[in-house]
Write a protein that binds this DNA or RNA. Structure first.
Lengths: 210, 210
DNA sequence: TGTGTAAGCAAGTGACTACTTGCATTTCTG
DNA sequence: CAGAAATGCAAGTAGTCACTTGCTTACACA
């Protein structure tokens, strides 16, 4: 069962590099340091192997949490955005390949969509909390605002390599800049959060694994 | 030369469906209604054919323009966002495939990046004009704001099929909702644009082709 | 009517694909 | 130490891939 995980990890890596058709069983076997026959003995077929590799891969993703009751929106949203952007950047290759494969292998895309769905739901809850607590004074729909921030982070992770000049600089401040802009959009001003917020050490950014 | 365009169009269509490796010369020939040998007589190799098909395809893309001097930001930005989102949705398949191919065929991704680069530059100019004309009162960096709106549109086009529940509803209002939210972020209020704006019929949305 | 050019067609090339089979080797276990 | 299980290795199968060759057909133009 150690072997199994090695093979799955290797398959995920090869898939991230070459996509489904480019992931030949030879390449996967070589990457796993295993004989090609072993793949079929474990998983039966290339398709089953890659499907399981993708499921195994998405299960290993940790989710960064947002506090249930907002205290310092700028800081909290920045930290969350940075973590999410970091996650997207680390997985940009595999995300790209997965997205291009959803038409021919929808079950792969299905399990991959769990992470962004979860993140989006979390973000919506947080934005609603901002409104409820009176920290966000603008009128906005939380789902639209959440989609906007996540879209910006997603596009940044997917596109910065190819066209860095259209992205905010420097790269390591991008998440903060997007978060700041979104807070302006929903009507969170610095004055709204006048209360000394640094005191309450909320346990956020609980990185689970990976 | 009519044949040439037919083949190029067919190749682009097959590529959008199946990606580079999935675009077999058989499939392309069948889609073009042409003998497989003809492909090689015209283009020499599959790689050259697909490369030319992608270049030909991106050249046919029309760009929606923004007015040089903003008059009715909400309306202008909404129209532009709708046009850009429509363009992205129509091409979502080919964009997905192109993005997943940039590592192994960078020249394909290179020519595909011209459209978003152009759009981003246009949007930056417009946002700067908003600031200059005193319509946008917030402090913001135009490139970040542009990346945010374009990112939201991009992610919407790429992800709505797979996870519609995280996207703003209805789909045909999404562009307007993103545009509205961005204008809030940059400090464009309805009062800033008090002057009767419907009068000046600015020639925007000049759709060039396709 | 003759000629050149564009296209189709049939067949075949060697390389690669996923996957199988049979057997030898290692490694763990009772 | 015996036997079972896991793995490697060599070989092979049928199919597909990009691409080539040789020949035939069809149509244009002079």
């Amino acid at each position: 069962m150690d072997r199994r995980h090695e093979i799955l990890a290797a398959a995920a890596g090869v898939f991230a590099q070459h996509g489904f058709l480019g992931s030949t069983t030879r390449r996967i076997a070589e990457a796993a340091g295993v004989n090609e026959v072993t793949l079929f003995r474990y998983f039966g077929s290339k398709e089953a192997l890659i499907r399981e590799a993708m499921q195994h891969d998405t299960l290993s993703v940790g989710v960064t949490e947002l506090p249930a009751v907002p205290v310092d929106p700028a800081r909290e949203l920045t930290v969350w955005s940075e973590a999410f952007l970091k996650h997207l950047r680390l997985r940009s290759s595999i995300i790209r390949k997965t997205m291009s494969e959803i038409e021919e292998h929808p079950e792969i895309g299905l399990c991959a969509s769990h992470v962004p769905k979860r993140a989006s739901a979390d973000l919506c809850v947080y934005l609603d909390a901002l409104k409820r607590e009176g920290l966000a004074t603008g009128e906005f729909e939380s789902r639209t605002a959440a989609a906007m921030l996540m879209g910006a982070l997603f596009a940044d992770a997917m596109g910065r390599d190819m066209m860095p000049e259209v992205m905010p600089q420097p790269a390591n401040k991008a998440a903060e800049m997007y978060a700041t802009l979104l807070l302006r959009a929903v009507g969170v001003s610095k004055k709204n959060v006048a209360g000394k917020s640094g005191s309450k050490q909320n346990k956020q950014s609980k990185q689970l694994s990976n």
